[in-house]
């Protein structure tokens, strides 16, 4: 892994995750709506979580080539 670039990317993902999963962004999704019958807040939390995992996976594995 080109350590410099991958490291910067990971820090950026960390900050993005911290922002997306906390106040105030989180409060935007705390409303009684549903997406495909599922509560918006739960869908949001799990989607962001999954997205973080996928991005980190891309950085970690892509950098290995």
């Amino acid at each position: 892994m080109r350590k410099g670039l991958a490291g910067q990317r990971l820090v950026a993902v960390f900050i993005a995750g911290l922002v997306l999963l906390n106040y105030p962004i989180l409060s935007l999704f705390d409303r009684p709506q549903t997406v495909f019958g599922l509560p918006l807040l739960h869908v949001y939390l799990f989607s962001v979580w999954l997205a973080l995992i996928l991005v980190v996976a891309w950085i970690a594995e892509h950098g290995a080539r």
Partner: peptide
Amino acid sequence: GPWFLPTYLGPTLGLTLAWL
């Protein structure tokens, strides 16, 4: 409700910095 999640979101965020 969703309050069980921080226990698992924390490690997800923490591990992004693990490589450093």
